[in-house]
Design a protein around this nucleic acid. Structure first.
Lengths: 163, 163
DNA sequence: GCCAAAGTGTAACTTTATTACACATGGTTG
DNA sequence: CAACCATGTGTAATAAAGTTACACTTTGGC
């Protein structure tokens, strides 16, 4: 999924993500508990990656104060269901907005406004497969994190938006 | 640089890396101090990524006990000179063995023996440029970390080598 | 109603990284 | 040569990120 349009219907992108969580949890016999809902809601509230201790702070403001370990548990579940990703280079976590399965996304991170977008590009994947295979390497998984400027920030270099 | 051959001349790969460090430090007006040498030697001693606190432990064994902050300073310098990379997904650091400039490597990490190899593949880079550009994203930097099995471990799945 | 699997809450703790600050070194420029 | 300044050092404390342990609770199926 690309960078959100300025006027994208965040309501819709949020509710469809929640629907996918419900569906996948059901399929794998997991419960969508209050803690899970709380953490996922916080992740979904922004198109930026957020750290565990920030999630904790927000959860406290919401009256449901979660401890780090509880958040890590929720994140483990969300990631196992493909509903969240870890952004390695930021020690932070991200709600997945992709429609289908999204096991090996390439993640674009705006160095200016910090917003994040995912994609699963076939050409990139094929190039990685080929390049690793040429080195005799059997590719199993990938972390691809791309830093740069999102459309809004690159076209408004002097007056970046969405801060 | 691909995975090291079983009998690669580690002596040579180490000494040429040290030569590059000397050259680049000179060019940028930095000193190659004892602390820097110590940290780089420890990084070069293995083709695996190593954490800062492990570097600290090894440095203590070598009689030059370095504190974390001193090691982070050395790593910052080494990374600024392109002589070391951070492996985000492992919170660990790696000596760079590439001959030339190596600003945006793709890193292959063996999930079995933990050895790491770098490459700078043009096709991958082009695919990433194209894919990000198609999303209106201006690519500035990349973290590409690829998990899988190195040649030795994939061909000896039952009896992995180099542990 | 009982059981096992899954989930919760709390506390302590480990690992990874940073800040602050006073001091040392080494090359260059007047 | 000596004053200067950028670069580097050493020590301590602290912040940020992630894990372990353990006793307890909830839920769905039999």
């Amino acid at each position: 999924m690309s960078f959100p349009q300025k006027h994208h219907r965040h309501e819709d992108c949020t509710s469809s993500a929640k629907a996918r969580l419900d569906e996948r949890a059901k399929k794998s016999g997991r419960r969508v508990t209050d803690n899970l809902k709380c953490v996922f809601s916080i992740l979904l509230s922004d198109h930026r990656a957020i750290g565990v201790y920030d999630i904790a702070a927000v959860s406290a403001e919401y009256g449901k104060s979660l401890q780090p370990v509880q958040i890590y548990r929720a994140l483990d579940t969300l990631m196992a269901l493909g509903c969240a990703h870890r952004v390695e280079s930021a020690n932070a976590y991200l709600a997945c907005r992709a429609q289908g399965e999204c096991t090996a996304p390439q993640i674009m991170i705006c160095t200016d406004c910090k917003r994040v977008a995912e994609m699963e590009n076939e050409t990139v994947r094929a190039a990685l497969d080929d390049a690793t295979h040429a080195n005799g390497f059997v590719l199993q998984n990938q972390h691809v994190e791309l830093l740069g400027l999102c459309p809004d920030c690159s076209s408004n270099a002097s007056q970046p938006m969405h801060h």
